[in-house]
Design a protein around this nucleic acid. Structure first.
Lengths: 115, 115
DNA sequence: TTGCGGTATGTTTAATAAAGCATAGTGATG
DNA sequence: CATCACTATGCTTTATTAAACATACCGCAA
């Protein structure tokens, strides 16, 4: 491994609570889409994900987070919907900040690697 | 998400060459086991992995690395075997160093997070 | 020259994960 | 009080992935 010109480094981070996955890149994106669209259904659609999976993700996030990240409304004018809680909005920020910091850190580190 | 006491952060890193996965935690461990045991077969066994998968991993690593990481020997006294090349030994060191640095970095960063 | 223990690889089977389908529930609103 | 759009959830089907099996090859050594 010497002068491997097109080498790149990728990474992934996850938050766990009691060993249970709380957040990852995908879930954070889902939260953002929910924030944008106001419903799990629409969020799932624009992520090209099945509603079922999106719903399950939200369910797990709410289950394992100290405070729910998503608040869901049944029925009503537009059949209901879903919005982020304060904790949910916060989670996005915290996750993305850490993710960005790690990305920066790694890109600095790989400069030092002489392959 | 406030005072989520048992929160932990996990991460994974991968090396890619031209978009093809070269190394990850699992492959590095496989390299180490090959180094320990002298063969893909035995390395796979102690990782509780099928020989086929281990062989394929080695095959991909050698394919995408500038220089092969594993040198294989057919036939011979003990039926042959596999040993790491200089590049292979080097890859382990580089990967694990970066991995450790990231771990340290993250553990420092999460101290700053007030959940 | 046969046996041994490894590499090499195609094929088949099993396990796991994701998607898809179906259907019930909910509640403001016209 | 029927409708609408969304949540909620079981069940079925499909797709993806990994394991298992089968076999050929390889080369030293007894």
């Amino acid at each position: 491994m010497k002068k491997n010109n097109k080498l790149s480094v990728q990474f992934r981070v996850w938050f766990f609570v009691n060993g249970e996955k709380l957040l990852g890149k995908g879930r954070v994106e889902l939260l953002e889409r929910i924030q944008d669209t106001g419903s799990i259904t629409n969020a799932a659609k624009c992520m090209n994900m099945s509603y079922r999976q999106a719903w399950q993700m939200v369910s797990e996030m709410n289950k394992y987070s100290e405070r729910p990240l998503v608040e869901k409304q049944l029925g009503g004018k537009n059949g209901g919907g879903a919005i982020l809680t304060e904790a949910g909005r916060n989670a996005i920020v915290i996750f993305k900040k850490l993710d960005a910091k790690i990305a920066t850190f790694i890109s600095e580190e790989i400069k030092k690697i002489n392959l």
